[in-house]
Each structure stands twice: as C-alpha cells, then as structure tokens.
C-alpha cells in the first residue's frame, strides 16, 4: 500500500526547543490517529505536514510531496479542520466555504455547488446562509468540517473534531468521519485527546511523547492478535471449570473470585464455553472477548 505520510528522522525546532525529535514512521492506513499528551508535538506535526514549519533536519512527505519543497501543491491535496475556531465571523457559512473551495482551485460555479453539498452533508443545510459568527459551537465544528472537505481533498486532517460536541453531535461527527474514510482515495489523519474517538475512526495510531515516537500500532492487527482471549465470570465452581479447560489443552488463568481468563486456539465458539461450564455444574455470568483497548496501548506507550 502506498505511503500516505512518510517521516524520516524528522526534527522540528521552534526557537531553541526541539519539538519533534527524529520521528520516523511510514503511515499507510486509511485513517490514522494521532495521539499524545499535551505538549507531545501533535499540533507541530500537523503544522509541519501543512508546510507551516520547516523541518530542521530529516524529511516529511505527504502523498509523495516533500513538505519542504511542495507545500503549495500539498495544500491543494489536504483539507484541514483546525482545533480552534477559525472563521470570518461576518461571512455566511456558505460564502465562507465557497471561498475556501475557490482558493483550493475550484471554479466559482463548482465551488458554489460543492459548498451547498458540503453543508447538506454535514447536516447544516438550513443554517448555511447565516453568518458564522452566530453559529453555536457544534455548528462551527460542522462548518469547519464542511470547509475541510469542500474541495474533495485526498487527505483530511482533523484536529480534535469532536471538541465541544454534545453526545448526539459527537455521534454524528464520528459517523461523518467514518463515511469520509470509506470514500475511495480519501485518507484521514485524526488528532484527538479522546481515545474512544480515535479507536472508532482509525486503523493506525501514532502515539507521540515529548516529541518522540512513543508507539505506532496497527489497530486492526492488535485487534486480530487478541481475538482468542476471553474474560469469563462464573457463578461458582470456577476451579472445576479451569481444570476442564486445562484437560482440553486450553490455557487459562483463575483470579480466585470467579473470574477466569482463557486463551482458546483456532476459531473458538463462545457457545462451547457455555456448554463446558454447564458440564461442570456452573454457569457463565458474563463473557467478553478480550482485546487490548487503545487506552491500554496508550498507557503502555506513556510508561
């Protein structure tokens, strides 16, 4: 798969402080999550990818373009939704988004058509003629998304897309992000503090810490690697259940309070476990397919 973002010993220094310290990674995912605590260098990385900051050393390539040499060409391929409010208050949403489309190279008629479509797509068709200054926080987030996708970019960079959204709006935003991800030839880079958002939207995650690469993981691989582990809670007689598992050659661990973690090879069927428990005169209260959550991965990376 062609690399979307290639970082090779990328170093960015602002003033005298090294913000990004020799980052190397090749990101190929449809949707890439960018995680890290405050001050980890997430925003600096995004700004570098947009060509605002010049790397002190090393290289960064986005969609095959060097950020140092081809910043202009690069920006026509990228749609950027910034974290903070970034709009011209007196302009109507439609006019603002249309102007953004025109600045990205769309002819005026097509820009107008795409601006209308973008507003309908983000669910703000009725509000598109209102000045952006009068929008609520959630509406501004959606307007920011509209301006980021209006020109049909190949890479959409979303910086904290669910910031300030209520649960319903958050759900809508996540749904939109998933739909954009599903579009052929469109890739996403999502920076968020909310691990749940990244977990839902992304298939690769880059975790930064103090400007360094703390972890890089392929969430799909992580998920498939853990799919044979089950966390089981039994009503009673857990010892007999563990012995029965061992007799079948399954690995298991018993924590002593009715909880058992079992590793089942092959293609395990949860129903077999219920049958096994019944044979031992007990019953399963809860059964959960174990997978390392992004939180686990994140905490490991922060250690």
């Amino acid at each position: 798969m062609a690399a979307i973002i290639e970082l090779d010993q990328l170093e960015v220094t602002l003033g005298r402080k090294v913000i990004l310290n020799r980052l190397s990674a090749t990101l190929t995912g449809k949707s890439i999550g960018l995680l890290g605590p405050n001050g980890a260098g997430k925003s600096t990385l995004i700004n570098t990818l947009l060509g605002y900051y010049t790397p002190t050393s090393g290289t960064a390539r986005v969609l095959g373009h060097d950020v140092r040499k081809d910043a202009r060409a690069l920006r026509s391929l990228i749609g950027f939704m910034p974290e903070n409010d970034s709009f011209i208050a007196h302009m109507s949403g439609l006019r603002f988004v249309r102007m953004m489309a025109e600045l990205s190279g769309l002819p005026p008629a097509q820009a107008l058509e795409r601006a209308h479509e973008a507003f309908y797509y983000v669910g703000m068709g009725e509000q598109r003629y209102r000045p952006i200054g009068g929008y609520s926080l959630g509406m501004r987030q959606m307007a920011k998304l509209a301006q980021a996708i209006v020109h049909g970019p190949r890479l959409v960079i979303l910086d904290e897309p669910t910031n300030g959204l209520d649960p319903a709006a958050r759900k809508r935003m996540i749904q939109l992000v998933k739909e954009i991800r599903a579009q052929e030839g469109t890739h996403l880079l999502v920076s968020s503090h909310l691990l749940r958002d990244v977990e839902e939207c992304c298939d690769q995650v880059l975790i930064l810490k103090d400007g360094r690469l703390a972890a890089f993981c392929d969430l799909e691989q992580e998920r498939s690697a853990n799919q044979h582990i089950f966390d089981i809670e039994l009503a009673h007689n857990a010892g007999a259940f563990v012995e029965a598992l061992a007799a079948r050659g399954y690995q298991s661990a018993w924590s002593g309070n009715g909880r058992v973690r079992a590793v089942l090879p092959g293609s395990p069927e949860p129903l077999d476990l219920f049958a096994l428990a019944a044979a031992q005169g007990t019953r399963i209260r809860s059964l959960e397919r174990r997978r390392d959550s992004l939180e686990d991965l994140f905490l490991k990376a922060m250690e």
């Binding site: 709009f87 011209i88 953004m100 600045l103 990205s104 190279g105 301006q147």
Partner: peptide
Amino acid sequence: NRGLSTLLARP
C-alpha cells in the same frame, strides 16, 4: 477569529 490560518491552509 483566526480565519487567516484557515485561509492560508489553502494553496
């Protein structure tokens, strides 16, 4: 309202 940063994120 920091609109300039959005404008200059364009080519």
